[in-house]
Amino acid sequence: MHYIHQIPAYVLLGLTRGSMYALIALGYTLVYGVLQLLNFAHSEVFMSGAFGSYIVVHAVVGDGKGTPSWAVPLVIVIGLLSGAVTGASVAWTLERVAYRTLRRRGAPKLAFLISAIGASFFLSQLAGKLFNRFRGNGFPKYFDQNRQVLRISTARVQVFEVVIILTAVIMMIFLDRLVAQTKLGRSIRAVAEDAPTAALMGIDIDRTISRTFVIGGALAGAAGFLFGTAFSFSNTVGFDQGTKAFAAAVLGGIGNIRGAMMGGLLLGLVEALVPPIPHIGIQWTDVVAFVVLVMVLIFRPTGLLGERLGRAA
């Protein structure tokens, strides 16, 4: 059968998309862990990372023609770093402006949500005004993203897929170790579990929250670069990717780091594998994704791995 024959290719597509969902989902889950806040503006952190890295990469390679192949990995690292720095800066500022001010005044949860939505619109519209002359453009073609590097059964693995999946896996392992083994990671887990007691143990809660936003922002910003490498984007790219990534975080268990990674990959795989089944059709992709989410939540209301930051599963 044609569908069965194509499964390896769909899996590859699913892992590629899922890696990006997972990177963005981690930001939702980290912030939820320490603040029990749904940071709806996180989608715009991702979008900012895409534009920030676009501008830097464009400045480095121009239109990309004639970039020597030895320089390509370097440009990719520059792109990842500039995306991460942009994302981290936007997330840090967001926390300072939109959330910390409310926290100081003991505002109710609802006020944070409205502030988040407002910040999301603001960032998206601002990017539209500043950058939409880039609309429809992907990144400069400084390397042949679609060159096939290997073939696994029917799956033709292209360069950009290798870059995305590999980078995402490295960053996720790095984050997992950071949270499990470093002083900052323990502070984040302590604040997530019991903030007043964390303060009694000498942890500066505001600083820990700030750093949590920075980590989540860096991951999302780097994901923005990866997305831009593969697809074209505009100032509204955050909404679609962000909503899916948020769904992935909930799917895995919001607040749970490994849950966000798993939820992201799973959602990517479902989106890639289910719609092409004969008689379904890819126009049903979003419907399939959210039906799966709702089904999981009916049977496991706290998501697949449950709500718990840190030492998960």
Partner: peptide
């Protein structure tokens, strides 16, 4: 911090 080990609790402290 019940999700942490004895060691991690002492490290946080």
């Amino acid at each position: 911090f019940l999700s942490m080990t004895v060691e991690e609790n002492l490290l946080v402290g």
